[in-house]
Design a protein around this nucleic acid. Structure first.
Lengths: 202, 202
DNA sequence: AATATAGTTGACTGGTTGGTCAAGTCAACC
DNA sequence: GGTTGACTTGACCAACCAGTCAACTATATT
């Protein structure tokens, strides 16, 4: 037994790619197997069900994400407000690259899956909630630091962090609908203007 | 022949409801027919295909929407900034009502469909783009008025309008993922803080 | 060499999918 | 009373779906 069977990881990356470019319901296991050059039975040797595959895909992508450009964007070395710009830039370049390559803006895998399956599958919904939660925490830390450094007036950092994440998801949604990554570049930077004030004292 | 055949409108409202609560791919024509108490053949008498049904559902919902709470929220009588609050309130109450009734937050039908099918069907994607375009125009008019009245400092009204729409869609996406309409109530009002400045004259 | 186990193969199942169609019903009009 | 055309009926279809399975191979352990 290897660290990670080649077959398994081939299934995983193919599924991730197809789920991202199309949707959960629209991609069948047969198609995944064909593209990954794997037999049906082998698939079910590694994954008990399609739902379980989706669950693993989410974990897998969340991992890559956290160790990839999210880690880069939220680099502690960068001044806090620049991290927000970095995040927007990274989203723009990624979406643009995908569009240039395949003609279509795939959007955010997590956002896509969330809207598609969160009314049908509570297990996956919970998983996606926690992915968003973790992303929101990165924004939170960034805002806390910005406030501490005095580059941002005090505000409700927790709520604002979530609002910023929501904004980015919304921008990507709109950009995907227009199939135009430029939407991300134009609207994205406004993430810095979003503010939710602290509950007023007295 | 009536103004609108009862059968047709029964199919339409059933489909709209199911597509909204679940998804396009997850709802089959048989299920729509069963719930609408209509035979398969009758369905295909009125709609040439499932795609055409979806197209009609989008038009139908966009119409109801434009003449319903969007018309109310963007009422010319209201001060411009209050219209934004009204919009958020309306979204909150609608989502909350749906959740109280069925246990699930359905989110925004347009947003849901956009992420699910816009990489697969350009006809429907174009239709959704125009729905968002129209909504964005309402924000645009509101911002223009706010600037004219002097209650808002001059800014890039067109870009900000789209950004505000994106924000609301993102907030609803996150709320749906958490299955918690309160997210809309808490984050929604921050829509007023979003600003995209005019290109600097220098 | 014998055994155990991880991985692979591809045919198979029962159910569902979007969509078709020939045969019919019914009300309106000539 | 005959004809037209909108509407309805339900059986039917090929393709596809997620998932199963018994037989097989390859490798590692004893």
């Amino acid at each position: 037994m290897q660290f990670e069977s080649d077959t398994r990881s081939r299934i995983l990356s193919t599924a991730r790619d197809l789920f991202h470019r199309r949707s959960y319901a629209d991609v069948g296991i047969k198609e995944i197997c064909d593209l990954a050059k794997v037999q049906k039975g082998s698939f079910y040797h590694f994954f008990p069900s399609k739902q379980d595959l989706a669950s693993t895909v989410i974990d897998d992508m969340a991992d890559d994400w956290a160790h990839g450009f999210v880690a880069e964007a939220f680099d502690q070395e960068l001044p806090p407000l620049e991290r927000l710009d970095y995040m927007v830039d990274a989203a723009y370049f990624w979406q643009k690259a995908a569009k240039d390559l395949e003609g279509r803006m795939p959007g955010c895998l997590f956002g896509n899956l969330a809207l598609e399956i969160s009314t049908r599958d509570d297990v996956l919904r919970a998983k996606l909630t926690s992915v968003f939660e973790k992303a929101s925490e990165k924004f939170f830390e960034t805002l806390e630091e910005a406030v501490t450094l005095g580059v941002m007036a005090p505000l409700d950092t927790a709520a604002t962090a979530t609002a910023m994440l929501a904004f980015l998801e919304g921008v990507i949604l709109l950009a995907k609908t227009r199939n135009d990554p430029e939407v991300v570049r134009i609207l994205g930077p406004a993430v810095q203007t979003i503010r939710i004030e602290l509950p007023s004292p007295h």
